[in-house]
Amino acid sequence: MTTATTAPTNRLTPGPRALAGGGLNSVRRNPLLVVLALMVLVFQLTTGSFLDPGNLRGIAIDAATLAIVAVPLALLVISGYLDLSVGSTLAVGGLVAGWFAGQQHQSPVVAVLGALAAGAAVGAVNGILCCYLGLSAFIVTLGMLTAVRGLAQQLFPLPLSSFGSGFAWLGGSRIAGIDAPVVIAVLVLVAGALFLALTPAGRHVFAIGVNREAAYLSGINIRRTPFALFVVTGVAAALAGAIKASVLDSVVAGTSGAGFELTVLTAVLLGGVALTGGSGSVFGVLLGVLFLGCLQNGLTLLSVPTFWQQMAQGTALVAGAALAYFGPRLTR
């Protein structure tokens, strides 16, 4: 910081840094960018097929559901909260959508709207308990993770499948040559970045995450915005569930989205969002999502056993945290 110039900075436009964050500066802020590039290079050299269009498309579709949930979850974490229940909410979204489309033969629009409503309901319960009643988000959403999974299995004891060609559109169609889930993920990423950079509520998210009391004393509504983020996170998880159900054409209440909550949290934290709240960017989250997607895909191409893949994922998170902690001291 001390090396920066003290010349008048009046001509600098206070632009939305979170959108792209140009050039060298974004590399310095997101060391993950370098790591990601190196990893892609290594995978391409070792497998020879990593950068094939078909493989990249697979990575993008896998990463899409992760990104759709990671963005609102990141906003929630920036505002000082947390949602561990998204894995079960994802299952509920898939089950509700599948039930409408497969059992009730409703239109795909009704199926998706039903899923989103279910996700909103889960998010609203989280939000009321955490934001308005002041309970610990960690405990509430950990409890909801288990409770919602139990409810899903009670309501849908049998696997659902064969949702019809209409519903398959959600996960399988292409818009201008790009897969629908990827298009949705890009929209979510852009919306998240615009929200943070360009709306007053986006600033409030940071302020609440940094210092809740100071935000309250500044007259900011410290409950409404995080509550809305809980609802949006629930909706996003359910949407991701509907997309997965559409892609797979089946949902199983017991296993759909199991462990997803930790993967998505890993992506958010790898992307540089502080678990203590108050800092993070959507661009970082995108990197975190791509990193996990590429890692998993590359290791699979190299026929690395699943257990080793899990070890790599976990190690990456801890190494990333260590880098974020010690990195600035080493470079100074």
Binding site: P14, P200, R203, H204, F206, A215, L217, G219
Partner: peptide, 24 residues
């Protein structure tokens, strides 16, 4: 420290926090 400042946020965000919405 506890009730006034947002240490990691920019000077502008700190000074304008309650003003951002009225200006929007």
């Amino acid at each position: 420290r506890r009730q006034g400042l947002f240490p990691v946020l920019s000077a502008q965000d700190n000074a304008l926090l309650p003003t951002i919405r009225p200006l929007a």
